[in-house]
Amino acid sequence: MAIKRLGGLKEGQRPWSVKVCNDCLTTWNRDVSAANVIRVLLLLKLMGFERPTKLQRPPWPPAVAGPG
């Protein structure tokens, strides 16, 4: 699957903000995807569910590797 930018870049636009697949013409907008994830997290929180494992933050401080 080859992915390219959608159209030319405008002043201040990041090259990865919108992508399109050359094979199936699916378009991804990074900001829309992030907004959808935030919405799902809010709905899960309001319904009393935990964050999905893939969307949990790693423990802090990070584990320190011991000698050896």
Score class of each variant (00 low, 15 high):
M1L: 09
M1S: 05
A2W: 01
A2V: 00
A2L: 06
I3N: 04
I3L: 01
K4P: 00
R5F: 00
R5A: 01
R5V: 00
G7I: 05
G7E: 13
G7P: 04
G8E: 10
G8C: 09
L9Y: 04
L9H: 05
K10V: 08
G12C: 04
G12P: 02
G12L: 00
Q13H: 03
Q13V: 06
R14E: 08
P15H: 01
W16V: 01
W16T: 06
S17P: 08
S17A: 10
S17K: 02
S17H: 09
V18K: 02
V18W: 05
V18D: 10
V18T: 13
K19C: 02
V20G: 00
C21G: 03
C21M: 01
N22A: 04
D23T: 11
C24N: 08
C24R: 07
C24T: 04
C24F: 03
L25V: 14
L25W: 10
L25D: 15
T26L: 12
T26W: 08
T26Y: 12
T27Y: 08
T27I: 15
T27E: 15
W28K: 04
W28Y: 11
N29F: 00
N29V: 00
N29G: 02
R30K: 11
R30I: 05
D31M: 04
V32R: 12
S33Y: 03
S33P: 03
S33F: 05
S33W: 06
A34T: 12
A35F: 01
A35P: 03
N36L: 11
N36F: 04
V37P: 05
V37C: 07
V37Y: 05
I38T: 14
R39L: 12
R39Q: 15
V40W: 07
V40A: 09
V40Q: 07
L41P: 02
L41Y: 02
L42I: 15
L43I: 14
L44Q: 07
L44V: 03
K45W: 08
K45A: 06
K45G: 07
K45I: 05
K45P: 04
L46F: 13
L46P: 06
L46H: 13
L46M: 14
L46I: 13
M47Y: 12
M47G: 13
M47D: 15
F49C: 06
F49H: 09
E50N: 05
R51S: 11
P52W: 00
T53W: 08
T53V: 13
T53G: 08
T53H: 04
T53F: 07
K54C: 12
K54D: 12
K54Y: 11
K54L: 11
L55Y: 02
L55I: 04
L55H: 07
Q56P: 01
Q56N: 04
R57W: 06
P58T: 12
P59Q: 12
P59V: 05
P59I: 02
P59K: 10
W60S: 13
W60V: 13
W60I: 08
A63Q: 15
A63W: 14
V64N: 09
V64T: 15
V64M: 12
V64D: 13
V64I: 15
A65C: 10
P67H: 12
P67S: 06
G68N: 08
G68C: 06
G68V: 06
